[in-house]
Each structure stands twice: as structure tokens, then as C-alpha cells.
């Protein structure tokens, strides 16, 4: 297996365009388990970990820009994130344990494209734009359009994830990240969710469909009524229809559907 170590972003993009079939390595917390066990058979690897140009977290007017190579720990400890998007730090804090957070990157969580990726419902609920880069140039995609199906993304083979652009949350908004797994650390979500209430409701889930999803029907219902206990029960009923979970090694479809409703109910009762 060939191993390429680009020294900077331009070189990384050049390598990726010359070898679109090579696997990109960021933190490697996901890719290395697959390489070591022989599941991932790639002709070569392109190690982009540590390329500074796409590892920064910065403010840009009303937006926060998070480089794809920012590690989960950097996000958890970042001052701008804790001020303008604390819910993302909450989600990252539930990923793996310390060692994984120290090494794993946010871009890896997204590009891994697991429906259970814990940061993904946050990006969905915050209507994130994602920048993809190739030797040919840059383009922006709506996060909502990024997952085309189970583990399928809109990224081309010669593209790298570069950054995530997210509107800062406003002072008055309520939000929550919730995750249900077998234990607190090192467990992949059976269900995870990000909920927001600002001018309108935003409801996003992971692990309850082939891709992370927004629940527009339930949102529309909640936006159009006064949220009392009766409306909350109706929203729970609607959201259980809107998700499409399945049975797998971690949980069952029935359990996931039930829990999706319970989490929403907890959020509605808290706002």
C-alpha cells in the first residue's frame, strides 16, 4: 500500500486528484480500524492529518467556520464554539472517549458518513454549509443535501472536506443534543438527536434512518401551533412516523422509534 504525506493543502489536493482511489487518512480513528482488520483494501493512503489550512476554527461575521481537520477535543475546548455553538461541543463530547476525541476530526465524522455519526444531527439542525475542495477549485454544498443514501456522500473522489460554515446561534434560542447508547463512553448511538427552538423548531436525528435526517413534518406541525402538552404528544406521534429506523447489532427499529419520540418529548417539556 502506497503512503503519501502531503506537506500542505495544495499538495494534498494534487495527490487526491492524481490518486482519486486512494483513501484519505485524517485522525484515522475510523479508517485505521478498517485498514488494520483488512476490511478496507485501498491501493494507497493520503495522510492529511495536521494540515493547518483546514484545521482552524474561526469567526466570520454571523458565522462560525470550522476546519474539517479540527479535532473533536479542539472543538470541545474552543472558546468560539462554546460561545456561539455550544451544542456542537456537547455532541463531540459524546464521541468515543478522550483518546478518540484527541485524535478524531470533525471532517472524519462527516466523511465517514455513518448514519450514527454524532456531530451530524447538529450540522443538520444548524443548516450548515460545507466547503469541498479539489485541485479544480472549491464548492459549497448544503449539509442537508450531502448524504445521498446509506454511506453515500455528494463528495467527488478527488475532493476533500475543507470546512463547515454555520450560523452562530442566537442568545434566546433553546437547544439540546441527546444521545442514547449502551454506556456513556465508547458507545455508538442507538439514537442521537439535536433539537432547536428559536424563531422556529428544528429537529434532526441520527441512527434512525439510512442517513441523518431532519423531521420537517413534525417541525411544520410544531411551528404552526401553541406547544402545550397536547401538541407535544401529537409531535411525538408524528416524529415516530417520520423516522425510518431498522434492526441492527446495536438496537431494534421499535426501540429506536420509541426513543426518538421520548427524546423529543423531553426537549419539548424543557423549553
Amino acid at each position: 500500500m502506497e503512503f503519501l504525506s502531503p506537506k500542505n493543502l495544495n499538495e494534498a489536493l494534487k495527490f487526491k486528484s492524481e490518486h482519486p482511489d486512494f483513501t484519505v487518512l485524517a485522525g484515522g480513528t475510523d479508517a485505521c480500524t478498517l485498514i488494520n482488520s483488512g476490511i478496507l483494501k485501498s491501493k494507497g493512503l493520503i495522510n492529511i492529518y495536521g494540515i493547518k489550512e483546514i484545521a482552524e476554527i474561526k469567526e466570520n461575521g454571523d458565522f462560525l467556520e470550522i476546519g474539517a481537520l479540527a479535532t473533536l477535543t479542539q472543538i470541545i475546548e474552543n472558546r468560539l464554539v462554546s460561545k456561539f455553538l455550544p451544542v456542537l461541543a456537547m455532541a463531540c463530547k459524546t464521541i468515543g472517549a478522550r483518546q478518540i476525541q484527541n485524535r478524531g476530526t470533525i471532517g472524519g465524522n462527516v466523511m465517514n458518513a455513518s448514519p450514527a455519526g454524532d456531530a451530524l444531527p447538529v450540522f443538520l439542525a444548524y443548516e450548515t454549509k460545507m466547503e469541498l475542495l479539489s485541485a479544480k477549485g472549491s464548492r459549497l454544498v448544503l449539509f442537508e443535501k450531502f448524504y445521498a443514501g446509506y454511506r453515500k456522500t455528494a463528495a467527488e473522489a478527488d475532493e476533500l472536506a475543507a470546512k463547515f460554515i454555520i450560523k452562530k446561534c442566537d442568545d434566546k434560542e433553546r437547544f439540546a443534543f441527546m444521545k442514547v447508547g449502551t454506556r456513556r463512553a465508547q458507545s455508538i448511538s442507538k439514537v442521537c438527536a439535536c433539537f432547536r427552538q428559536s424563531s422556529s423548531y428544528k429537529i434532526a436525528y441520527g441512527s434512525v434512518a439510512p442517513t441523518p435526517i431532519r423531521c420537517y413534518v413534525t417541525e411544520k406541525f410544531l411551528n404552526g401551533c401553541k406547544t402545550d402538552a397536547f401538541a407535544a404528544d401529537e409531535a411525538v406521534r408524528l416524529v415516530r412516523q417520520e423516522v425510518s429506523p431498522m434492526d441492527d447489532i446495536r438496537s431494534t427499529a421499535n426501540y429506536r422509534r420509541h426513543v426518538a419520540g421520548v427524546l423529543l418529548k423531553r426537549f419539548l417539556e424543557s423549553v
Partner: peptide, 15 residues
């Protein structure tokens, strides 16, 4: 300075 798992880091990722 950071605690990491050495089973999922490849030697090529060391500088």
C-alpha cells in the same frame, strides 16, 4: 501532549 490509542495510528502519521 495528548493521550491517544497507538493501535489506530499508523507509523506514517508520525512526523
Amino acid at each position: 501532549g495528548e493521550c491517544v490509542n497507538s493501535c489506530i495510528i499508523l507509523f506514517g502519521q508520525i512526523e
